[in-house]
Structure formats: C-alpha cells, structure tokens
Simulated scan of single mutants.
Amino acid sequence: MRKKIVAGNWKCNTSLQEGVELAQAVNSVVLERGAEDVTVVLGVPFTHITKVIDTVNTDRINVSSQNCAAEAKGAFTGEVSASMVKSTGSTHVILGHSERREYYNETSEILNKKVALTLENGLTPIYCCGEPLTIREANNQNDFVKQQLEETVFTLSSEDFSKIVIAYEPIWAIGTGVTASTEQAQDMLAYIRSIIAEKYGNEIAEATSILYGGSCSPKNAAELFAQKDIDGGLIGGASLKPEDFLAIINAY
C-alpha cells in the first residue's frame, strides 16, 4: 500500500511569528478533522523548522526543509547542510524544485550530491521533476522527465530509491492558477511509474509514492487524487491557508 502524502511548500513566505501561527492553525485543524491515513508534511523555511517542530504534533505532522546544501560541511557561507537539517528534527527535504533549478542553477550533478547527503542523514527526499511549457507544447514531456530522473535518482541503488518520494510538477502550472488536466497528470504519473518499473521492478514501482504539484487546490484535489497513480500533492499557495490545506488532505 503506497503512502498517501500531502506536503505543503511554504516557499519564501511568512515571518517566524507568522509561520508559528500558521503551524498552530494547521496543527489544530489536522488533529481535529484531518484524514488519519494521510501523511502530512510541512515544508517550511530553514528559520522556522525548530519552532514549527515544537508547535505541531510530530506524530501526525512531519516537518521538512525546502532544500539542503550539496556539501556535508565546510566553508560554504549561507548554506545549510543535510546533517544540520537532521539535527532540527526535520524528517524530509524537498529537492530539485523547478524554482531551485531555474533561479539557482541546480544541475543534476548538484542534485545527486544533495540526494546522497539527504539519504545518508536518514532524511526522506521529496524529489521534484517536471517540464517547462515549451517542452509540453512540443509533446516531449516524457523524454524530458525521463532524462531528469535518469541523471539523478535513477542512479541510486534499489534500496536507496525505495526511500524517496517523487513529485511531478509541470513548471507551466506552478503558481499560475493553471493546472494540468486530470488526464495529463495521471498520464505523466503513470509514465513515471512505468519507467521506475523498468529500472527497479514492479514491486518498487508500486510502492513508490508519486505526488502531483502545480496549482493543486480544494477544487481539483479530489479529482486528481482519485486517479490510480496520483498518491497525493506537493501544495504551494494553498498550504498557506489552513482550511484549504485541510480540504486537500481530506480530498482522498
């Protein structure tokens, strides 16, 4: 049975106090009314992690960083290593988000280092992949996503690959209000599962949770999550609104 996962990505939003208040509100609604069979993850800014962990019931809500350094330690001013993230009590790390790839030039080589360090520290990578609009319009999205995976997480051993979560995020649907159609999302997640099966076998493919990210909202979550290969969502803007986030958690 694959895990159902709803992961919020707060991105570069909220002051520390605002973040604590948001975490308190999310914790309250999830404990009171949240579906108990859904794994909930909050991806918060580095500055917020320890306070949010102190605020939420960590038996019910997992806390994630949104990134980590590609090096274990050293003279890398401003970086936060995977071991530092681990020391906070965080359980997950979001890696490979399109914003990191585009704005901070994260390459497959860099991401391979980050994935390895995340796994070495016992953290769960939520690994993002997805195509820009030009690739989708040319109908080359499958080849593009396959290459992203082949250059990175498909280099892992079967044992290590089985520890990760995949998140498909069509870049053209992130923060735009445009969502991939249910058919487009299901087709891509089914394709991703098929190439996981080719690489690692059906057992690992069927056990891998694959999330959809890209303007997922209370309005479309139920239809998306009803699809065979969509195991949950990586949620951006809606994760900043406790009732909207709860509605998505309860959308299965």
Rank of each mutant, 00 (worst) to 15 (best):
Y200R: 00
R193W: 04
A197N: 02
Q186A: 02
Y212F: 10
I195T: 02
S215N: 09
I192W: 05
E203H: 11
I195A: 00
Q184D: 15
T182H: 14
I204Q: 00
L211R: 05
I196W: 05
Q186W: 09
G213E: 06
Y200P: 01
S217E: 06
P218D: 09
S217D: 08
L211F: 04
K199Y: 01
V178I: 15
R193N: 10
T208N: 05
E198Q: 13
A205T: 01
L189R: 12
Y191A: 11
K219N: 15
I195D: 03
E206K: 13
A207R: 14
G201I: 07
E206M: 14
T182F: 13
Q186L: 00
P218T: 02
G214I: 04
S209Q: 01
Y212G: 07
Q186I: 06
K219L: 13
L211P: 07
E203W: 03
S215E: 14
S217I: 04
L189T: 14
Y212R: 05
G213N: 07
T208G: 09
M188H: 01
E203F: 11
I196L: 04
Y191P: 10
L189V: 14
N202H: 13
I192K: 04
A207C: 09
E198I: 05
I195V: 11
T208D: 01
S194W: 12
A207M: 12
G214W: 13
E198F: 00
G213A: 04
A180H: 05
T182W: 10
T179W: 08
I196V: 15
A185C: 10
A185L: 02
S209C: 06
I210E: 07
M188N: 06
R193C: 07
C216I: 13
E203K: 15
A197V: 02
L189N: 14
Y212P: 10
A190Y: 12
N202W: 08
A180Y: 04
S194T: 09
Y200H: 03
G213Q: 07
A180W: 06
Y191Q: 11
E206Q: 15
G201V: 09
I204S: 01
S209Y: 00
A180S: 14
V178R: 13
T208Y: 07
S209P: 01
I192E: 11
I204P: 04
Y212N: 08
N202K: 14
